[in-house]
Design a protein around this nucleic acid. Structure first.
Lengths: 336, 336
DNA sequence: CTGAAAGCGCTTACAG
DNA sequence: CTGAAAGCGCTTACAG
């Protein structure tokens, strides 16, 4: 591999000059500049990133720690983070915390010793019980992490969108399956939905909202879905809103098994718009998180060090085939 | 941040000695060793990885280039690569080629300038039209890349497993939906299936095999599935084997839409065992690739530089609910 | 605007 | 077994 010295020799300038034309950091007279560029081309010179990093004390990478790349939402996030990073000539180091706070901490510490331009963490834990020295910028994505600046979707207003949609279709008895009220973003979605539903309530036109809690996964959808659909029809909601697409797809699964046609007899809404949402049958009505922007702002924040607390982005409702007006027979229902 | 010098000073030894105890590369007498370790602990010293990399000309990372982390199979692969890398104290740099050979090349070149311990590429292209200097080990995972050593699943024998399964259930008219015969691994699966099916054929007990070609995605399953299920029953296969789970899930989708009960009237088999396969309805019978081993061997190969051409791992058949004996009415059928 | 030189934090021959 | 020192390939004050 040719080094900066080789280039300097060939171009008959000092290494300092070569460095300057490469980094475009200072004025270099045209003739010198040309000679340097010619030499770079001739030698096929590529700067040694490690050496540069040692001097500047910054590696041209960002770290990305997330619970599990296998989760469709996270993999989409990771993809856009990588794409956005590449635009900025940054490489991304990926690590799975497996939702293990110890591992998350270890990853963070290792990453810190690489001195990347910044670290994005989709947190497994709140990280309250330890701290880092050093001035490497850290950004929390999606979930809170310590008191680092955070980029997130406005979950509350997004969930309200779901409530609006269902209500406007005519649903008055709905059920919310939550990813667990102990998880913060899950709680935001849940309260966003319920609060809006309550706002929509009036004595003349009453709404009934129930909530069931589980996790963000398929199993929750299956288990709780089965429970709900086992009820007598008059005690069933006409629509189920879910805290995640996974839950919703689980609900779709039991609906099929129990022969409850969606959306005819049951409307189902997800949250996230993961890839398969548009492919399952019926196609899932859901909330699309602005993943690309989430990634873009996260990286921007990392590179800008403009002090920021939180950036909250708006999500959009994607209406597909899993929601419709409630079936005619959905007459006066009793409260469970 | 404390440096090796600080440690040396505190421990009252030379930096060389500190380096030696850290890297465990030479015998250091107990007392010195103890002093050094104590100093490291006291200062919370972490070696500067960049400086080490500059000296050793190797960064403790591996590169991972794959078409799209969003593809469930790749994300599982990536996860296990990362887990395995972490075990070896290696960090992974992730890049999506987006199936673009130019981008793949650019990524590769960038990665090379980082001088990682090795690069794993799940190739978008055969990479025939360019070459790299340098001695950084490269390993092809899943798909061929140049003439680098390759780790893969034995697609041919895996597909034969599917043929065996279907035949033993009693299916005699089957159809294979391929991911395209121009893609090498797809062709292996296809021929593995067809060849075994033909071996199983005899004049007393004939089998009929058809093939349709598309891509590895859901759409292919939907489109071709719809085409097949639109045929009159007597011209329909009793089972469809697919080149990927995505295709199979697409087929499941149209089966539902067209009200063809699976597996009662149609058996469906996938390939890959991506996460959702066990969650779709009905749960998909499929081939499980030994993803963990794929990842493990890839990294082993990278680190060992034992000259190897190809490692081919055996897959396993996972029988779930999308396959069963063909329905009774599946009597004498005519050839299409 | 340009060059000479220091120095980033390590590792590793080279002596002893 | 240990220390002194060179050097990895850059960047960046410091002079001029």
């Amino acid at each position: 591999m040719a080094t900066i010295k080789d280039v300097a020799r060939l171009a008959n300038v000092s290494v300092g000059t070569v460095s300057r034309v490469i980094s475009n950091t200072a004025q270099v007279k045209q003739p010198l500049c040309d000679r340097v560029n010619a030499a770079i081309l001739e030698l096929g010179y590529k700067p040694n990133l490690t050496a540069r990093a040692l001097r500047t004390k910054r590696i041209e990478s960002i770290g990305l720690i997330l619970p599990d790349i296998t989760n469709p939402f996270f993999s989409q996030l990771a993809k856009h983070v990588e794409l956005e990073a590449t635009k900025n000539n940054l490489t991304v180091m990926l690590m799975n915390s497996l939702d293990d706070k110890e591992l998350e901490k270890k990853h963070l510490e290792l990453l810190l010793t690489y001195a990347p331009r910044g670290i994005i963490v989709v947190a497994a834990s709140s990280g309250q019980d330890y701290s880092f020295e050093g001035e490497i910028p850290i950004v929390a994505l999606d979930r809170d992490f310590k008191s680092y600046p955070r980029i997130k979707t406005d979950n509350t207003s997004a969930a309200a969108l779901v409530a609006d949609h269902l209500h406007s279709l005519g649903h008055r008895r709905v059920l919310y399956i939550s990813g667990g009220s102990n998880v913060k973003i899950s709680a935001s979605r849940q309260s966003g939905f319920i609060d809006r539903m309550n706002e929509l309530h009036s004595t003349e036109d009453p709404t009934i909202v129930e909530t069931l809690e589980g996790n963000f996964n398929y199993d929750t959808g299956k288990t709780l879905g089965r429970k709900i659909l086992s009820r007598k029809k008059r005690f069933r909601p006409t629509a189920i809103a879910c805290g995640s697409d996974q839950i919703a797809i689980g609900v779709l699964g039991v609906s099929y098994e129990m022969d409850v046609k969606v959306p005819k007899y049951l409307s189902v809404v997800g949250f996230d718009d993961i890839n398969i949402s548009s492919l399952v049958t019926p196609h899932l009505t859901t909330i699309r998180q602005p993943i690309k922007d989430l990634a873009k702002y996260a990286i921007e924040l990392l590179l800008s060090d403009i002090p920021t607390n939180e950036i909250s982005l708006q999500a959009t409702l994607i209406i597909r085939n899993s929601t419709s007006v409630p079936y005619k027979g959905a007459v006066k229902q009793k409260k469970v």
